[in-house]
Simulated scan of single mutants.
Amino acid sequence: MSTNSTLLDRIVFYPILCEGWKQNMEGAIYHLAGFLLLLGFMGGSGMVGSIFIFGVLTAGFFCAALWGWLDACGLDIFIWNMLLVLICLLQLAHLVYQLRQHAFPEEFDMLYKQLCQPLQVPPQVYKEIVKCCEEQVLPLAKDQNYAVEGKTSIDRLSFLLSGRVRVSQDGQFLHYVFPYQFLDSPEWESLPPSEEGTFQVTLTAETDCSFITWQRKDLYLLLAKERYIARLFSVLLGFDISEKLYALNEKLFAKFGLRFDIRLPSLYHVLGPASSDMELEKEPEETEGPAAPSGHLPTFVQTAPAAPCTVSPPAPPAHLRRPRPDSDLSGEDSTSLVLEDFAELTGSFMDYLSEGEYMK
Rank of each mutant, 00 (worst) to 15 (best):
F159L: 13
D184F: 03
L191H: 04
Y220I: 02
S153V: 02
F178Q: 09
L248A: 09
S194A: 14
P118M: 14
E195S: 13
F233W: 10
F178L: 06
G171Q: 09
I154V: 13
R164W: 02
K131S: 15
K142M: 10
W214G: 02
L222S: 04
D208A: 10
R164P: 00
V167P: 00
V148M: 08
Q169G: 01
T207E: 15
D208L: 06
Y246N: 11
Q215T: 02
A247V: 07
A141Q: 14
Y176A: 09
S190Y: 06
P139C: 10
W188L: 03
Y180R: 12
V137M: 13
W188T: 04
F199W: 08
S158K: 02
Q181R: 13
G163Y: 04
Y176H: 09
R166Y: 05
F178P: 00
W188A: 03
L237R: 06
F211R: 04
L222H: 01
S185I: 05
S234P: 00
I241Y: 11
Q120C: 08
D218R: 11
I129M: 13
N249G: 14
V125P: 01
T207R: 09
T204N: 12
L115V: 14
E135H: 14
S194P: 06
Y180E: 12
G238I: 06
I154H: 07
P123F: 13
P123L: 15
T152M: 00
L219K: 00
L222R: 01
A247T: 06
